[in-house]
Design a protein around this nucleic acid. Structure first.
Length: 565
RNA sequence: UGGGGCGUCGUCAAGCGGUAAGACACCAGCCUUUGGAGCUGGCAUUCCCAGGUUCGAAUCCUGGCGCCCCAGCCA
């Protein structure tokens, strides 16, 4: 069992407390066995990561096991492609299930036998009601339901009918197998729930072997039971289903795992609903399930998030039963925290402004030493070419600067990181637009490397790239997926309408230091003073680089200047 | 008088009858060849409300109030 390190403190939450107590009482002979049971009908997202880290984490912490099981009982929604992506994502996150990769469909034969037993024991019957009739008979939240006219069929008749359902004698939707529980229960899940339906659909694993498929409630508890699961963790939505989970296992006298529910994850300004994500993906408003704007694990990976930052995030948000909305800033904090330690620093000018250093010898090139990561003494240093014509960031120059603007302006002196002090001597503008097109500066040869030759203080330090040596790239800047903190919950609301129009900005003609020419997806760089970036795994090619901004650096200047306005 | 849950800082979240942890965010300062990082300090006399029990209550009791979930042959 993989146990990724997280620097979170000893986790403690109500579920871990229950597990600890069970171990103490030697429940299940002291075993801890969990499972992560996704339905392969979409991609895994950050909300699933919470569940994954809980399921796999609790098992690992207690020397237990965690199975990966695909809950594939509805063939019309499920695809092998989703299975593959989920496997990749969970592995990427750092978890491992050895040979315990299962599918609910592995148990279809056994499930059928269990159903037969239920019938034999008088606990299930074949019902001829249509879907609509079943709904009518179910009653409402405040009124009890009424019994199906077929509720008292004999065991023999039920057996015969059920076998014929399986044999394909009946049309889709014409009959169901139902548990015989209590149509008057206050819990609608207990009002004779359907446990098998007729559905002629090709299953991604069992193909056309079956034309009847078991429902979730029946399948899930028995799959857990068959696998020897001890603690079955799921979301609050299933609290109402627990009595049914227990009922099936009790009727069948099967090994009885304990279902425990916890609150699902919500994060501000994004979506953690597979249904809504699917809607967005299908709409074409994003490029796919792995669009870097989405909080899918594949999207986050492409965006540059690290597995360890996501695991850390999951540890920090905690586990409880109250519904909550976690601040997106926390997720961003955890990536920065991680990338700060491991990301090589490089210089990249996103919105270039040309600077000519008049007193620097024409044609001269110096290779200046640049430290790779001040947070990591092992990271060493590299060399960056410097020459007479360079680019700086447009936002690092202001002709008429406000107070506390430590960057370049006419007459002011700044340090070029790893290079020299320069002073701006002339501003060249486009006559038509008035736009600044070029700056002329002089440099102080004695400040080589950026050190102050005479102890004079230079407050601002700018990143830069030598024009002749620069590598071009596109850079994609991401902002929040949604316009508002929370998606609309109004009747008939379409998640598309919640999308922010500013979630993506593409910059072209960005100038990178030459070493970045062979940057590979998967490594995160810190573009000095700007943020963390990584090559896009789909679109970046040698000679045509595309970088994604994972997250910006904290920007206290932005805060100051915003405050002034 | 349907059933099931939940209510502690702006946001998460500890607390389990002995007098409100921590994190993010935010604010102030130090430091800095990234206005990054780091460091220091500040940030709930109060725990949805009201009564009650107790020497003592966020924790126990009673009664309110508020929010969420459930009427798929989805999971």
């Amino acid at each position: 069992m993989a146990t990724p390190n997280t620097d979170a403190n000893e986790n403690t939450d109500f579920i871990r407390e229950i597990v600890a107590r069970d171990i103490e009482n030697n429940k299940n002979e002291g075993r801890v066995h969990t499972r992560f049971p996704p339905e392969p009908n979409g991609y895994l997202h950050i909300g699933h990561a919470k569940a994954i880290c809980l399921d796999f984490g609790i098992a690992a912490e207690n020397n237990g096991l965690c199975n990966l099981r695909f809950d594939d009982t509805n063939p019309i929604k499920e695809e092998t492609h989703f299975v593959d992506s989920m496997i990749e994502d969970i592995r990427w996150l750092g978890w491992n299930w050895d040979d315990r990769l299962f599918h609910a469909s592995d148990y279809f034969d056994q499930l059928f036998e269990f159903a037969l037993r239920l019938i034999n024991d008088g606990h299930a019957y074949v019902c001829d009601l249509t879907a609509e009739q079943i709904r009518e008979y179910r009653g409402t939240l405040t009124e009890p339901g009424k019994n199906s006219p077929n509720r008292d069929r004999t065991v023999e008749e039920n057996l015969d009918l059920f076998n014929r359902m399986r044999a394909g004698e009946f049309e889709d939707g014409t009959r169901t197998l139902r548990a015989k529980i209590d149509m008057g229960s206050g819990n609608l899940n207990m009002r004779d729930p359907v446990i098998y339906r007729i559905m002629r659909a090709t299953h991604h694993r069992t193909s056309d072997k079956w034309c009847i498929y078991p429902m979730y409630d029946f399948t899930h508890c028995l799959s857990d039971s068959l696998e020897g699961v001890t603690h079955s963790l799921c979301d609050l939505d299933f609290e109402d289903h627990r009595p049914l989970y227990d009922w099936f296992l009790d009727q069948l006298g099967a090994h009885h795992p304990q279902q425990i529910e916890f609150a699902r994850l919500n994060i501000s300004y994004t979506i953690t609903s597979k249904r809504k994500l699917k809607r967005i993906v299908d709409s074409g408003k994003v490029t796919g399930w792995d669009d870097p704007r989405l909080p899918t694990l594949s999207g986050l990976r492409r965006r540059g998030y690290t597995p360890s930052s996501i695991r850390n995030f999951c540890d920090r948000i905690g586990v409880a039963k109250r519904e909550s909305l976690v601040d997106m800033a926390l997720l961003e904090f955890t990536v920065r925290e991680n990338l700060n330690l491991i990301a090589p620093r490089v210089m990249a000018v996103l919105r270039p402004l040309k600077v000519v250093i008049d007193n620097y010898p024409e044609g001269q090139v110096e290779d200046l030493e640049a430290i790779n990561n001040p947070e990591d003494s092992e990271a060493g240093s590299r060399t960056v070419p410097f020459s007479r014509e360079i680019f700086i960031e447009r936002s690092d120059f202001m002709e008429d600067p406000p107070r506390k603007f430590f960057r370049l302006s006419p007459g002011s002196e700044v340090r070029l990181k790893h290079a020299y002090f320069i002073t701006c001597t002339e501003v060249i503008k486009d006559e038509q637009s008035g736009e600044v097109t070029e700056l002329h500066c002089t440099y102080d040869p004695k400040s080589r490397g950026g050190a102050s030759p005479d102890g004079r203080r230079v407050k601002g330090t700018l990143h830069w790239v030598s024009q002749a040596h620069a590598v071009d790239a596109d850079v994609r800047l991401y902002e929040s997926l949604l316009k508002e903190e929370v998606p609309s919950e109004k009747e008939g609301a379409d998640p598309i309408d919640d999308l922010s129009p500013n979630s993506l900005e593409v910059l072209t003609g960005c100038k990178l230091e030459p070493g970045l020419a062979d940057a590979k997806p998967g490594t995160g760089y810190q573009f000095l003073r700007q943020g963390y970036f990584t090559p896009d795994s789909v679109d970046s090619k040698p000679g045509a680089l595309v970088f994604n901004r994972t997250v910006g650096l904290r920007d206290s200047w932005a805060k100051i200047s915003k405050k002034k306005k």
